Amino acid sequence: MGKKKLKVIKIGGNIIDDQMKLKDFLKSFAKLKGPKILVHGGGKLASKMAKKMNVPVEMIEGRRVTNAETLDIITMVYAGKINKNIVAQLQANNCNTIGFSGADGNTIIAKKRPVNEIDYGFVGDIVKVEVSVIKLLLINNLSILFCAISHDRKGQLFNTNADTIASELAIALSKDFEVELYYCFEKNGVLKDIHDDSSVIEKIDQKNYITFKEQGIISDGMIPKLDNCFYALEKKVKKICIGKPEMLFDKNIKFTKIHK
């Protein structure tokens, strides 16, 4: 008997920030058959909360500098407000789900990002994903919702990139499942022209990825996302796609598939 298919899906902040979009997505997610894991961030909501509490928001190249106050806000917003609201909505759609941070079940262990030129504060780089609890829940037909928080097994929580959490979960679980990794955001996929939503690059492999980077077609925040994707493919993740959430449910929609 072959391995069971497992979908690991990461949803971007633009879906979380729009109540109607989120509601529609969760209704569809609940209907997906088989084992599934959903990963979310929530950076915009955390930034809004920080402004309300007069805590400065510091971003360097799209990455949040996380001091102790910011970490408190992120924990409240990610592991609390967003995570539990999504769990409640999934329960309303008959999708039995458990909400996790990386500390729950000792699932995602990280270390503090070393200080080179920049001190990112309480930002964690993942060291290990413990799959035993995750597998137990998936085998018993529970869906899992992860927020973008890890821990160090010494009592310290860390803010951790949600894309990385999704890819590390996919990699760790690929020993036991045939894993498909989906990055869902507001665009139709990776675009040739950022201003033209129909200019989807439907297939990216390592060869044309280098060319697209040289030509400046792929740049900025898309580079770490795609680097993550190629790393996950090398580590036996079966299938990786980037695009709108509709790609999960609609066979006719265009999106980007990452190939070796």
Rank of each mutant, 00 (worst) to 15 (best):
K7A: 12
K7F: 09
V8S: 00
I11K: 06
L22N: 03
K33L: 12
L45N: 09
A46T: 12
K52G: 00
M53I: 13
V57L: 01
G62S: 07
R63S: 05
V65D: 01
E69K: 14
L71G: 09
D72I: 05
G80L: 03
I82V: 14
I82Y: 03
N83H: 06
Q89I: 14
N94V: 02
N96Q: 08
T97D: 05
I98P: 02
D104C: 13
T107P: 03
I109P: 06
I109R: 11
P114D: 10
V115A: 03
N116H: 09
I118N: 08
V131E: 09
V133Q: 12
I139W: 03
N141S: 15
N141T: 07
L145R: 07
D152V: 12
F158W: 08
N159Q: 10
L169Y: 09
A170C: 05
A170D: 01
K175A: 08
K175T: 10
L181S: 03
C184N: 07
C184K: 05
K192E: 15
D193K: 14
H195F: 09
S199L: 11
I201P: 03
I201R: 04
D205K: 07
Q206Y: 13
K213P: 01
K213S: 06
K213D: 01
Q215N: 15
Q215S: 14
D220S: 14
G221K: 07
M222I: 12
P224Y: 00
D227A: 04
L233G: 08
L233H: 02
L233D: 04
E234F: 02
K239W: 02
K239R: 11
E246Y: 00
M247T: 06
F249L: 10
K251P: 05
K254F: 02
K260M: 12
